[in-house]
Amino acid sequence: MRKILIVEDEKDMQEIYRDLFEGQAKYEVDIESGTMPALRKLTAKNYDLIILDIIMEPIAGDSFFVYLRSDNKTSSIPVLVVSVLGPEIMEKLRRVDHAFYMQKPVTKEKLFEKLDDIITG
């Protein structure tokens, strides 16, 4: 089973993600509501993918992305940015190899398509 870490601080979105990944056996999902707990998870476990929200406090998702890319342990984990912000946000990120983007709202179908793409492709 592939392991996915979702970093999303909105309660509703967390619930929706939980619902989205329910009843499937392809992915094992951990959801963290902030960057600090996410970092703790990342040091303890190896993930195949990170789903990242951008508008977060106190550390915004883009800063978190920079951090992920600077740490050897996490620099090559693919990151899927899922945000209400437009695709221009990706231009602000550096070292966007292994970085992917989807704008909210996302449908279950589109999300899983993308995940398959990223992980198998």
């Binding site: 909105e10 509703d12 979105m13 619930e15 929706i16 619902d19 989205l20 508008i55 209400v84 912000l85 909210k104 709202p105 996302v106 449908t107 279950k108």
Partner: peptide, 17 residues
């Protein structure tokens, strides 16, 4: 627009749920 987009996106995804 970001402020407005967030609840709308949430609502849309909740509908799908």
């Amino acid at each position: 627009s970001h402020e407005l987009k967030t609840p709308i996106a949430n609502a849309k995804m909740a509908v799908e749920m």
